[in-house]
Design a protein around this nucleic acid. Structure first.
Lengths: 345, 345
DNA sequence: CTGAAAGCGCTAACAA
DNA sequence: TTGTTAGCGCTTTCAG
């Protein structure tokens, strides 16, 4: 690797002292110089293809212009848009994004976080949703600005960007009630993950708001967000002889598993049961039946999180200690053919 | 931000000189010390929670332990697994991954690449597939180890990890021929992108290998990888009165567009036309008809690329100049219900 | 085996 | 307006 041209080279080329060159190349200090020398230095830098060494600079300024992002994984359908939103927002203002994923293990989350801390990132975006996860001390001590995505923390001690699960479940339940359903089941996701838990709470709330009988609206725990577990939970429901006419699943995959279980028994969706999902992942609009689901602006979530983080970092050391109210992003209902009026069954 | 403990602190705590502390904490130089002092330093480091500052180290060693990855976008279904494969492989050996996406614009690719270069990444993974893209000089001059994904370059001057499009199209065409098809059309993707172009070449080859008449196997250019363009290309084919019985699309989305166009005309898949896709994206197995397609080990592609890059970086400055034969990853055919025997039509 | 000292490339006081 | 001088935290000769 040919060694890069340094500031010293530029200074020599321009016939000035190295510190003069530094000032000329730095927006904020350029006005301390005569425009002639400044121009000369800039020309020299251009000529030599000078690029400041970020490490040398960072060593002085204590900033890395990088932020770390921890994700539960890279594959789940709603993750890439979040990543994209954050990446674009950050790169526009010169920040680089480091990524780490934990593959659903909170020990790896911690490891990823510690790697980022070691690398002295200027900020952190944590999209890990495990409720049992405790961040490293340095994070807790607010030494590095941090925002949460899809996860709120009990004491609001960090800014959080979350989908409004309560509103979403309200939309879903009202949609079903509008179709005549009064006995509605919920197939819940993993309750150790905030999205799983909060959607369940949202469901309970929505049922109450709608004036339905909680006793007639059972909740099944699928324990995960996978289709097979939705299938299992729904099978159990169907075999129990329960008389619900609609099933609200905590995400799209669980909903697909439910539909499988229903169809396996020779029953139809939405003829015998209406089923709803959550996330509006790709191609669920093309399935038969097309899935009624909740759409969330995931890309915007990433972007909002990044902007919030930029604000935080701009505030510098004086971290606001006051509780941060979570920023809720509005969901929308996408009604398709997996839901319909209550049948005569 | 409370200032972190430095090597100097550790040295003072252990009662040794700073350089001694450095040696004790460095695997390779530890044996130059008496094990007692070494242990003492290590204990002190542990006690103070010492973490070496990567910038200070990087400034000396000229290594950043980071690699940059440029992707066409973050959303396309086959991208996240590639990213995941690379990320895991690299993080296991202590490298961090910086990501940049270009949103299908080669100017942004260049910008991303230059950002990475400025940040002095130790290596580069370029998954950008634009054939008209010219990398920055520094990359061309081999100043930083680089591997390509899903893109091979004419002169084999960079190692490339690619799916074996030729083999894949061979599988597809033989599958169709096995079902009795002899007139097969190809709906090609964008020809300015290597995957689009090479799949087209692969199709032409496969037709020839199978001994079919090229004249009876038309090629339509969809110009993109989107369903709507597949729909348009296929509509044109259907309206032209052509007598093909099977359609090989360059990716799954194009295939779905083709199926739409066929069904709109009251025709059936696979009754009247067999249709194949490419990529095996999520949920195409649940569509009606379920899509026959090609599955590629995308996660492995990311992992292989990362390993290849690690090798390259380990080789240090002495970049092998000899041409690098592309590493081909084997595709597999996933036969589903969108293909069937030639009908009586 | 350990200490001294130089310096990676840059910025930020402080002088002139 | 410009130059001088210290370092940022670390590794690495070079002495001892």
């Amino acid at each position: 690797m040919a060694k890069a041209t340094t500031l010293k080279d530029v200074a020599r080329e321009a016939g000035v002292h190295i510190s003069t060159a530094s000032r000329a190349l730095n927006e904020e200090t350029r006005n301390e110089l005569s425009s002639e020398t400044a121009d000369r230095v800039i020309a020299a830098a251009e000529l030599l293809g000078y690029q400041p060494h970020p490490f040398a600079r960072g060593l002085r300024t204590n900033r890395t212009l990088s932020v770390g992002m921890v994700l539960p994984d890279l594959i789940s359908p709603f993750i890439p848009p979040i990543l994209a939103g954050a990446q674009h927002t950050l790169s526009e203002v010169g920040y680089s994004l480091l990524i780490g994923s934990d593959e659903v293990s909170s020990s790896r989350t911690k490891a990823a976080l510690e790697t980022f801390l070691d690398r002295r990132v200027d900020g952190l975006i944590v999209a890990n949703a495990h409720l049992d996860f405790a961040p490293p001390d340095a994070v807790l001590r607010r030494e590095v600005p941090t925002v949460l995505i899809s996860r709120s923390v009990e004491d609001d001690s960090f800014p959080a960007i979350v989908g409004d699960d309560r509103a979403a479940l309200g939309l879903v339940v009202r949609h079903l009630v509008g179709l005549g359903h009064t006995k509605i089941a919920h197939v819940a996701g993993p309750l150790g993950i905030s999205t799983g838990l909060f959607r369940k709470y949202g469901f309970v709330d929505a049922i109450e708001q709608a004036g339905l009988s909680a006793a007639q609206c059972p909740i099944l725990d699928a324990g995960s967000f996978r289709a097979e577990d939705g299938h299992a939970a729904c099978s159990q429901l169907l075999d129990s002889g329960d008389t619900v006419t609609a099933i609200v699943a905590a995400n799209d995959l669980l909903a697909l598993g439910c539909i499988d279980a229903i169809q396996e028994r020779g029953l139809s969706v939405p003829g015998d049961f209406s089923v709803t999902g959550y996330d509006d992942i790709a191609l669920v609009d093309r399935l038969d039946p097309a899935l009624t689901t909740i759409s969330l602006p995931y890309e915007e979530m990433g972007a909002v999180a990044a902007r919030r983080l930029l604000d935080l970092m701009a505030d510098g050391g004086d971290q606001v200690e006051t509780p941060h109210a979570p920023i809720l992003l509005a969901p929308s209902l996408v009604a398709r053919s997996s839901t319909g009026p209550v049948g005569p069954r």
